[in-house]
Design a protein around this nucleic acid. Structure first.
Length: 795
RNA sequence: GCCGAAGUGGCGGAAUUGGCAGACGCGCUAGCUUCAGGAGCUAGUGAGAGCAAUCUCGUCGGGGUUCAAAUCCCCGCUUCGGCACCA
């Protein structure tokens, strides 16, 4: 079914408000959310897959009688829009508006329904006013703070780059060497929620295990201790973090990160300070790329003139600076145990440092550090303990003397939200020379993003060049003040949008608590796995924060998550820069939306990546034509045939189960099988014909709506009908096919009545001529699995 | 390097969780139908042997558990994702 007829039904669904539930008084709510897109270009097949999955589920839930809420909006701020605008010299607001118009039209043509009356756009003042409000709440609770941090800066593009835009230390676009710049920036203290974000993953049984694992790794909890190493003949000390206190006796040197602050502090005591300085400078030049990635050779330099004392045995050990020690993690210093850490081992080998074995393991490899647990040796009174006890005892011993402290460390870092960019939510902060940092009062929100800005990159935040925007009055002392020129990371926009959908135009609040408590958490969230970490972690963080503020009454935003696979072309993810993007619209024009929708769903299970192939679409189109022909032309009769009814109910059962499990591909093949059978019946009863249409409706909405109303003569939408449910009574089969095996090999089949007595079955099987010829030896054993298998085991 | 997932016909993929391997579809082959077809219908389609009925082999490779393994266990290989000097 094509063109005009599909459009007719799309209009019809809009007219009857199929996707516009009564948000105030839902009876059985179901919140189905699909990740909102970036309106940077037209939607391609990959997007379509996402929205088709959601729409099919949504229509199924509507037919099950849920008050279904499935809204859509636009994640409209951000880099791609700004870059596109710079390239084409159009204002981002303009290009965004154009793209939204185009994408909305696409979604409509695909028959994807949304509660369009609740549409949101994160770049509109009525939305970002509340993103700013959210920032202020975080600021009030001390969760938003400012500190110096490095950014990647491309001197040729004159712009700040995101980490993803830095490829091997070079700018992704112009290949210039990326520089590091230190800037004052805003951070959100997500690390304060690290433990809860980790623990509460267990509240999410309906999230993919894969995603939860990725989040766990990202949070990266590790349990250990801070151990203090005094410097000999000095009052100073160096602290290290370790998870392996059991190996403390094997520590033969300390290693500091080149950025460690104690190095300049101890300048006077360091005898070889000039060489040390030179080494640090060299390391810095080797830039992040070379140092961070890859298993580069570990290099370092010994600090002469100061030595550290191992607190557990008072042994004096040398202090080194080593490029494999990171300032960003732990204390920026480590206790090196070459015998039991591969990195320390390699370093010790290179510089001829002693290697002292203190753990006896089961399988020790030569020429490698033994990193496993084992039994402590060469550890004085701790020798003989196992690693686990050793860690506990050694830390306890040091703790008594104030030389150690138990410590849990997370790899998770605070969330840097400042962007030196134009196209984002302005950070609602004012800098006053008298009052310092002053948040914009809530009544003054939104801080409007000015339209007239030269957003071409010139090395600083574009807003800085707009005097009208920058110059303001301090809300506290009313003297002239400056605005914050940076905008927020767009991940903030998307960390709370699911709350805004319920009241997108409310001018008094970000969201209405009663309604949000009623509708959230989202019942089903659907999106790409590329958001497994950042977006989902940030949303969880913000939800927990709002819960702590008592603004909502749930702690997790998304009860079920479904991450669909990518659609790839020529083995690569579709992207404009690679030039391998496929748009579905020409196919829809040729075959109709229903055929394209079903083809995408039929191609593979939705969580799998698929290589795009439009060839099979002909088959789907044929199938839909056969459905149409069957429904429109078959002769009707009163009575229902038993076999027809049984097969129909078996199909109903399977389709329901498959949809619930997102097995859309097998649901479709089950319907195809049923249709193949029904096509051979000379005539059918009315209920079977209607069942086919109802079963298929979520998959092929246009065709089924048309058949339901125009052919079967109903006056109400097919989506106002209940989805078919199977009646167990009609599933019963009185005859069962039993598989007969001899020595585990298939040798025959036999049809018997269900739940036949074993003795009788045995008799039938052994007397069957096709089986007899295989029994050439005495029977050792006879295994009967009721209603399934008989296996004859010969001796 | 570490963690995770996967490996089934020419292709996409099924297999009630240990019980007929290859459902459904694409593609291909033959026939019918049509003025014609890039339309429709019918039949066939894992490999090998045979006129046939039928038999043998077969789910990445190797071993094992079991009456019975694509499915469970061990070893190895390959591919794809995530993390990557995290102390």
């Amino acid at each position: 079914m094509l063109g005009k007829r599909e459009k007719y039904w799309q209009d019809y669904w809009e007219k009857i408000g199929l996707f516009e539930p009564d948000l105030k008084h839902p009876k059985r709510k179901y919140y189905c959310l699909m990740m909102f897109p970036y309106p940077s270009a037209a939607l391609h097949i990959g997007h379509m897959r996402n929205y088709i999955l959601g729409d099919t589920l949504a229509r199924y839930k509507i037919m099950q009688g849920f008050d279904l809420f499935t809204p859509m909006g636009w994640d409209a701020f951000g880099l791609p829009a700004e870059n596109a605008a710079i390239k084409n010299n159009i204002h981002p607001a303009q290009s965004i508006a154009n793209n939204i118009r185009r994408m909305k039209k696409q979604l409509r043509n695909w028959g994807v329904g949304y509660a369009w009356s609740k549409e949101i756009n994160s770049s509109s003042p009525e939305y970002y006013k509340w993103t700013q409000w959210l920032f202020l709440q975080l600021y009030k609770k001390g969760l938003a703070y400012r500190k110096k941090a490095k950014v990647n800066f491309c001197p040729s593009c004159q712009t700040v780059l995101a980490n993803e835009q830095v490829v091997e230390g070079k700018c992704e676009r112009c290949s210039a060497e990326v520089e590091q710049k230190e800037l004052e920036q805003w951070f959100l203290r997500i690390t304060a929620y690290a433990q809860r974000l980790l623990d509460d993953l267990s509240l999410l049984p309906h999230w993919p295990e894969r995603v939860k694992t990725m989040q766990r790794n990202w949070i990266g909890r590790s349990e250990g201790a801070i151990i203090r190493f005094p410097l000999s003949n000095l009052s100073n000390y160096i602290e290290v973090f370790t998870t392996r206190a059991d190996t403390l006796f094997g520590c033969t040197y300390l290693a500091l990160s080149p950025e460690h602050p104690i190095i300049p502090e101890m300048k006077a005591n360091i005898k070889n300070f000039t060489q040390v300085e030179k080494y640090i400078e060299q390391t810095r030049k080797r830039s992040l790329s070379a140092r961070d990635n890859l298993n580069k050779e570990k290099k370092g330099i010994e600090i002469k003139g100061i030595r550290a004392i191992n607190p557990v045995n008072n042994q004096e050990i040398p202090i080194w600076i080593a490029d494999y020690v990171l300032m960003e993690y732990g204390s920026g210093a480590i206790m090196a145990v070459p015998a039991h850490d591969q990195r320390d081992y390699e370093f010790a080998q290179r510089y001829n440092l002693p290697i002292k074995e203190v753990i006896k393991g089961e399988s020790q490899e030569k020429g490698k550090a033994y990193e496993g647990d084992g039994v402590l040796i060469n550890s004085e009174r701790f020798s003989g303990l196992n690693s686990k006890e050793g860690r506990k005892e050694i830390i306890a011993y040091l703790e008594k003397n104030g030389q150690a402290k138990r410590k849990v460390l997370y790899r998770l870092r605070d969330w840097l939200i400042s962007r030196q960019r134009y196209w984002g939510t302005p950070i609602p902060i004012i800098y006053c020379s008298k009052c310092g940092i002053v948040p914009v009062p809530e009544k003054d929100l939104p801080v409007l993003l000015p339209q007239n800005v030269d957003f071409k990159p010139k090395g600083e935040s574009p807003l800085k060049r707009n005097k009208e925007f920058m110059h303001t009055i301090c809300p506290q002392c009313h003297s002239p003040a400056q605005r914050e020129a940076d905008t927020m990371d767009t991940f903030i926009d998307s960390s709370w949008y699911y709350l805004r959908y319920l009241s997108p135009h409310n001018q008094k609040q970000a969201f209405e608590k009663e309604m949000v408590d009623q509708w959230l958490p989202v019942d089903q969230y659907i999106g790409g796995v590329e958001h497994a970490i950042l977006h989902l972690l940030y949303s969880r963080f913000i939800t927990k924060f709002l819960y702590d503020c008592k603004l909502i009454n749930f702690q997790e935003p998304f009860s079920s998550l479904f991450t669909q696979g990518m659609v790839v072309k020529d083995g690569l993810k579709m992207s404009k820069s690679k030039g391998n993007v496929v748009y579905p619209d020409p196919l829809i024009e040729k075959y109709g939306a229903d055929a394209v929708r079903m083809h995408i769903l039929f191609l593979a299970p939705p969580e799998k990546d698929i290589e795009w192939d439009s060839r099979g679409i002909e088959g789907m189109s044929r199938f839909l034509k056969r459905v149409e022909r069957l429904i429109s032309t078959c002769t009707q009769k009163e009575e229902i045939e038993e076999e027809v009814r049984r097969r129909t109910h078996q199909t109903i059962k399977k389709v329901n189960k498959d949809i619930e499990n997102f097995h859309f591909n097998t649901a479709i093949s089950a319907i195809m099988e049923l249709l193949n059978y029904l096509l051979h019946c000379s005539s059918l009863d009315k209920s079977t014909i209607e069942t086919i249409v109802l079963l298929l409706a979520p998959f092929a909405p246009h065709l089924c709506e048309e058949l339901w109303q125009k052919v079967l003569g109903h006056t109400e939408s097919v989506f106002k009908q209940s989805y078919p449910t199977s009646n167990p009574q009609f599933l019963q089969e009185e005859k069962i096919l039993i598989i007969i095996q001899v020595n585990g090999k298939l040798r025959g089949k036999i049809e018997v009545e269900k739940d036949i007595e074993e003795e009788r079955l045995k008799e039938l099987v052994l007397s069957s001529p096709q089986i007899k010829k295989w029994i050439n030896k005495p029977i050792k054993k006879l295994i009967i699995v009721p209603n399934r298998v008989v296996n004859i085991v010969l001796s």
